[in-house]
């Protein structure tokens, strides 16, 4: 499958990655090779096979909706690249 500039641009938006011109050309090539390879799955007739997300049958697990953790705001914020007034600081998002 040929990966066009438009496709790689779109994937870059979904993946939130910014590629240099050189990296973009390499990414087009790598993705094209990989998609050609995985298209091997088309040899399989899977029309009547249900998609399997979990490898064995599982049931939902419920628990009481109760708070068990304490206030760890300070520790959590200590990993933030930037913080202000007890909050994560991000670039201006709305005008």
């Amino acid at each position: 499958m040929v990966i066009t500039d438009e496709t790689i641009e779109y994937v870059g938006i979904l993946a939130k990655l910014e590629l240099s011109d050189e990296a973009r050309e390499q990414a087009k090539k790598d993705m094209s090779n990989m998609l050609d390879y995985v298209s091997k799955l088309n040899e399989l007739d899977t029309d009547n096979v249900p998609a399997m997300s979990h490898a064995f049958p599982v049931k939902n697990v419920f628990r009481e909706d109760a708070v068990t953790n304490g206030d760890d705001r300070e520790q959590l914020l200590s990993n933030a690249p930037e913080q202000k007034d007890g909050c994560y600081k991000v670039p201006k998002t709305f005008d």
Binding site: T7, L14, A15, L19, A23, M31
Partner: peptide
Amino acid sequence: KKSRSEGFGPEVQRRIMLGSF
């Protein structure tokens, strides 16, 4: 975009892009 592109190496970016696709 810049943080992720500078922070992830080539193999990780390759798999994120394939997965997004």
